[in-house]
Amino acid sequence: MDIPLSLRGILTISEKNMRIYYSKPPVLMFGILFPIFMFLSFSVGRNIELSRFFPGFLAMMLFFTASSVGPMVIPFEKRERTYERLLAYPVTIESIILGDICSGAVFGIVFTIFAAVIGVVLLSMSVQSFVVLVIALVLGTFANAALGVLLASPSFDNPPNVMMMSNLIRFPLIFVSGIFVPLQEMDGVLRYIAYCSPLTYLTDLFQFAMNGISALHPAIDMIVLIVSSLFFFLLARTIQKRNLARGL
């Protein structure tokens, strides 16, 4: 494997995605507007403790922003028939997937940092561990961006279909991942379901970073997020290679 060539491919693909897909309406709508409106609808006019809810909002923001770019890229490129040209450039399928993940990750981290700064400055949210907050942002954005790319990996060439399918998976996850109901307050089965969602571990890590409390040890949250990222990447690679073997 030629590492400099592969890195160049990843960076070029990320740059291309940033130029083309960041301003696409589905990315803006489901990536930025949706989590903000969800936050407002669950917080405005309700007697809730904002400091307990805000880490969940950050997790939701990171989840939606980072996972909104991936589902757009491959289906859009297949529809526009630029995917074949992309594959003919000196890049590997791994570089393409990593490039897509990186562009989603950057989108996620930028907007979530912005939300975190607003929370700290305007809403007087506290940060107990700045280091854990940064780690949560980095690990969370890559895990969620990889999930977004995985959602687009089956052979779709129609972006609206992929966005619909990805929302079908993303929406239920926010209700079972400790964002609105803390993990400690969940009943038996729901709690087991929550443990299957990587978003649960991200929410827990943000809780630790901002409030100093968490249901699980932060190290476990970090390990699960790393393993999730690798799992999503490898699964996306397997699916996309299988698609190529079947003729794009």
Binding site: R19, I20, E80, R81, T82, E84, R85, A88
Partner: peptide, 12 residues
């Protein structure tokens, strides 16, 4: 490579 159907990025 020049693929069929002028495959270039319309948004660029």
């Amino acid at each position: 490579v020049i693929p069929e159907s002028s495959t270039v990025y319309g948004d660029l």
